[in-house]
Amino acid sequence: MTVWSIIGAGVAGLAVASELVARGAKVQVFDPGGAPGPHGCSWWAGGMLAPWCEYENAEEPVLRLGQMAIDWWAKRTQVHRRGTLVVANPRDLPDLRRFARRTEGFSEVDDRKITLLEPDLHGFEKGLYFDAEAQLNPRQALLDLSHQLQDHGVEFHHARAPTGLDHAIDCRGLHAREYLQDLRGVKGEMLVIRCPDVTLTRPIRLLHPRVPLYIVPRGDGVYMLGATMIESEDSSRITARSMLELLSAAYALNPAFGEAEVLEIGVDLRPAFPDNLPRIRRLGPTIYANGLYRHGYLLAPALAKGVADLALDNKHSEMVDEDRT
């Protein structure tokens, strides 16, 4: 029986492994970083399953392919289906109107409805509520996938993949760029804070003409604040400006965030192709699955299905843009 070698145990690699195993294939996983952790950019993600919100500034496949993600993940990890609330300060209401025009799947909410949804949000007169959206905890999701795979007898090698593998699936993100010339890194910065004084129960997006940001509750008063989007490939540092912007957004949602404890600072690079959509390429013995950009958890299920279709059934989904076996 063919053994598929998945290279890279981030969200792309683990989702591909999970999909292949679900279809009865045999797989092994290589990642020199070992268990999921801060070495991979999936660790720093927001974990929002928000295809309708993302569609505001993304192309159509993100909406269509993203919608399958919620059920795919719900079979594998805990998914919170409490929707997304999008708000803007009164002076930025044109941005809220623009956002509403560019997408679908929401209802308009006024200050009373906003207070009903999130009693700790103040000073917002209008918002958009996307009730079908969901979120997951990215770190838990990665751990859940690896445990499930191990339970299915999948071997995890904490080492670089040997060269010359026959049935390899390269899911290494930006590390694969020597084989994927049109891949680039888009810098993202995020913070994890603890603020038990504020209770928010679903992802909140705060629109702003220059720095739109979101805050995702992780439970126990812990929140993830994200994320900047900068065309830069320096993942070594967060700038003071970015940190100011992130914290100002939280402060604007509720001034009690001023008392929050900063737990973590995350900086990493999202792998992206020029149209910011994922790609599957088969070059010789290796299938490359990459370019999830800011949609790691949202599009990994569709990417995994596309890879499994190609690997097992030789079917070419829309993400396959090159096949040279």
């Binding site: 890194g185 810098k187 900068i230 830069s232 320096d234 700038t239 400006r241």
Partner: peptide, 13 residues
Amino acid sequence: RREAGAGQTFWQM
């Protein structure tokens, strides 16, 4: 202004 020196890929575009 943002990201001194690290935007090479974008600048090349």
